[in-house]
Amino acid sequence: MQCFMALIRGLGGLCPCPKCLVSNNELSDLTNSFPLRNVQETHLLMEKVYASRTATEKDGLTKEFGLRPVPNVFFDVNFMDPYMACSFDELHFDSGGLWSDHLFAQFKRHLDEMPGQVARSAAVKIDSRFSHMPPWSTLNHFKSVTNTSFNDGSKHRDISKTFLYAAHDVFQSNAARQLLKCLRAYLNMTMYGSLDLQTETTIAEGRKAVLKFSEMISIYEPMSSRSENPEVAKKSWNFIKMHYHVHQFDDIFEKGVSRVFGTKINEKMHGPLWKIYHERTNFKNVADQIIRIQQQFMVSVTIRSAINDLDDYMEGLDDVNSDQEDIIEESFYLGAKQKEIAFLDLENLYKSDPSFSRFRIHVGEFLTRYLSAQRSLLSD
């Protein structure tokens, strides 16, 4: 998706990163930085492309930068930088990418290179330790992992957290042990990257963790290339999800903690789509079916919500009417509880109290001053 937003050629291009101009043969080295893609520079380049007459000329101008010779609609949006908008996504780049497709897959290949009975014993030991792992809040529990395929990024992340404990003494080759060191560096890197509170110190430590992981991989790669298992030996770490860690902590520094721009927080939204696919489609041309069924769900939810609002409103009216009926049925009297009494009688009643001496005269003076003041305010 990021390749589409940046309109680059993707993994097949000479510069496959949507954020910088790294060469396609330097993706595994996380110690180097490369010039960032720039909207203004791309604008100037595309003007030359538009002026070119042949497709060959256009392709020649953009191929070096890994761009496609077509206009990017995001450039027409004010203050929009699609290169900066592209962000590191821990769920799909780490848990569902670097770990699941590369580190975890490579550990399985190292298991396969071990002699038959030894490999089975090693797999049983790993699975047994996963099965006996004590329950922990928010941590998925697995009975086995070595012979199971997962496609859930969150579950893959929990596997990576536990795998180092489960396999720390299982592998025999130096290359596999070095890969365990790579995993430890990977876990430190992801730990710093997924913090919900970042400071200058944690970001600096995160950058160090990225360099440490790159160092461990650079040590492992030549060791694995000497493996007798061709699947282990031919493994390349020159892929975009490896390189993207160069930009991970830059994104955090510029945009905030990773949960702000990652997709993990929205992963649960896939559940309804998964249920529609499995329970309401015939597994053919599913896109149209899913869209139609999802629209039906949204319409039904909207109607149900409107009915609930109407019920709440009518219930409120019933409560108001009930209160009014209660008020009408009750008896009200406006006035003081004491009976009327003349000023003269009041003075005689409290003649022993000096406060009531000349009470009628004091009340008259007060009313005169008060009414005069009110008359002045009204005339102003």
Rank of each mutant, 00 (worst) to 15 (best):
L45E: 03
S144M: 15
M1V: 12
N238C: 09
E26R: 01
I159C: 12
D81R: 05
L11K: 05
T368Q: 09
V286P: 02
T201G: 11
D112A: 15
G335S: 02
S305I: 12
G316D: 13
Y350P: 10
Q338F: 01
L344W: 11
A85Q: 11
D380F: 12
N38T: 02
S173D: 01
S224H: 09
L44K: 10
K58E: 03
D353Y: 10
Q294L: 14
N24C: 02
V124T: 14
E228K: 11
R53N: 08
T368M: 10
M223V: 05
F104P: 02
R129A: 08
K241H: 05
G316T: 09
R53F: 04
N174Y: 02
A233I: 10
Q374G: 03
P71L: 07
H92Q: 14
V39Y: 05
S357K: 13
R358F: 13
I307K: 13
P222Y: 00
L183P: 05
D169F: 08
K268Y: 10
K264W: 15
S100L: 15
Q198G: 00
V210N: 01
H43D: 08
M216S: 08
K235F: 12
K241Q: 09
Q40M: 09
V363A: 02
R129P: 05
R304S: 13
T190D: 04
D323G: 00
Y83Q: 04
L139E: 10
R53K: 06
K208S: 11
R120E: 15
W136A: 13
S372A: 07
K161E: 14
F332L: 11
H362V: 09
K284D: 13
N238R: 07
Q106H: 09
P82C: 07
A175K: 07
R226C: 01
A204M: 10
C17Y: 00
K63H: 04
P35V: 02
L367K: 09
I219S: 01
F93K: 11
G10D: 08
H132D: 15
D127H: 13
H110K: 03
Q296Y: 13
Y165A: 08
D127I: 10
I265E: 14
D250C: 02
S52R: 01
N78W: 02
I240V: 08
T62K: 01
P16L: 02
S28T: 05
R280H: 10
